[in-house]
Amino acid sequence: MLALERVGKTYPNGVHALERFSAEIGQGEIVAIIGGSGCGKSTLLRAIAGLDPASTGKVSLDAIAISAPHEKIGIIFQEPRLLPWLSVADNIGFGLSDLPADIRREKVAKALARVGLAEKAKAWPRELSGGQAQRVAIARALVPQPEVLLLDEPFSALDAFTRRDLQDHLLDLWADTRPTLILVTHDVEEAVALADRVLVMRPRPGRLFEAININLARPRDRNSTLFDDFKRHVLTSLDRSLDRTVPDAHGRSDQGAAMWW
C-alpha cells in the first residue's frame, strides 16, 4: 500500500506548490489525479517518485519511506524520454542492466511483443512515431515489474485516436501484473475511463479537493449514460475546486470540457 501522509512541498524559490496531501492507495488500484494548472499534481507525482522529495509529510510504500527513486516505483513522463543513442530494445532493457544478458534479452523481447513493436527492436527512437515511442516508454517502465507505476500526463502529447488506443493498451498491460497506477491527467474522460478513484485537486497551494470513486465495471463503455454521469460529476467538482459557477445538473458538460482539455 502506498501511503501519503500530509505531503507538502515548498520549492527553494518560495513557491508553495502542495499542502497537506493525504491519501492511501491500495495495491493494484488505479488512481487518477486531476486539477487545474498549478494545483501541484506533477509536484505530488515527483514526490512519490522520489525525484523531488516532499518538504513536509511522508510518502511510504509498504511502510518504507520514499525519499529517493525506488526500484518498486516506475514513472512515465509526458514525453517518452527514450535515450536516442540506444536502440528500441536497449531502451526497454535500460533498467535491467543488473540481470544476465540472456535473461534481459528474453524479457525485452517479451515486452516488445507485448506492446506490439517486435519488428521495431533494432530501430532508433528517432524512427518511431509519437505513439510508438510512448509504448516503448511504457514497456521500459513496466519491464522491471514495478509495484507502483506513476504516469505524468502520459498521453497528452498524442492525437485523440492514438490516445484512446494507448489508454486501452495501458489497461490491458495493467491486467498482466496489476501494479498500482497513479495517473496525472487534464483529461476528464481519460480519468473516468481508467481510474477506480479520481482525486480532484485545487490550486494555490495544491490540495486535495475531492475524491470520487468510479464504480464502473471494466471494460467501460465510454458512450453509456453512467459514464457520462461520472464525467459530469468530475467536471462539476473541478469547477467547484476553482470556485467557478456550477453548471446546472442537466446541462451538458461542454463548457467545462473546453476548460479542462
Binding site: A49, L51, A68, P69, F77, L83, S97
Partner: peptide
Amino acid sequence: RKIVEVGRIFRLSGPAMIRRI
C-alpha cells in the same frame, strides 16, 4: 535534464550515470 532524470529513476550510480547517460 529530462534524460538525466531517466537515469535517476533507474537509480544509476554516479559512475554509471556518467558512462550510460
